[in-house]
């Protein structure tokens, strides 16, 4: 039951990524369209624009959610691929623990960076 619940969260994370990645694609890569509509900036990867965006609450929250969902979706999917190797139960537990630890550390570091820039 626990495994299926994790799988459900995996699906939900996928759906969230779809929306957030859509926003990211529009802002970062389809900027010309947005700019022609009078929204966004002409050069979204300009350091000043990136910094200004990071100071906005909406983007800070969006970054953290995207980071969390992307980490969960990616690492859970990676774990499942490794589980297909049908390793010994000890190895499976180690892999699960190691990937969970990696995910938590990366999320903590990324969240810290997003909050730090926002607060600065």
């Amino acid at each position: 039951m626990r495994e299926s619940k994790l799988w459900v969260y995996h699906l939900i994370a996928g759906a969230v990524i779809l929306v957030l990645l859509g926003i990211h694609m529009f802002i970062m890569h389809l900027d010309a369209i947005l700019y022609s509509l009078g929204v966004g900036s002409q050069n979204p990867i300009d350091s000043g624009v990136v910094f200004a965006r990071s100071k906005e609450l909406f983007f800070m929250i969006t970054y953290i959610i995207l980071l969390g969902t992307a980490l969960y979706h990616g690492l859970y999917g990676f774990k499942n691929i490794l589980m297909e190797l049908t390793l010994a139960q000890k190895s499976e537990k180690f892999i699960s623990g190691f990937l969970t630890l990696c995910g938590v550390l990366l999320f903590a570091y990324g969240t810290f960076a997003a909050v730090f820039v926002f607060m600065k």
Partner: peptide, 12 residues
């Protein structure tokens, strides 16, 4: 049936 069907070796 949930325990047997939705554990780590089940439907997922």
């Amino acid at each position: 049936r949930i325990k047997a069907v939705h554990d780590e070796i089940g439907a997922s």
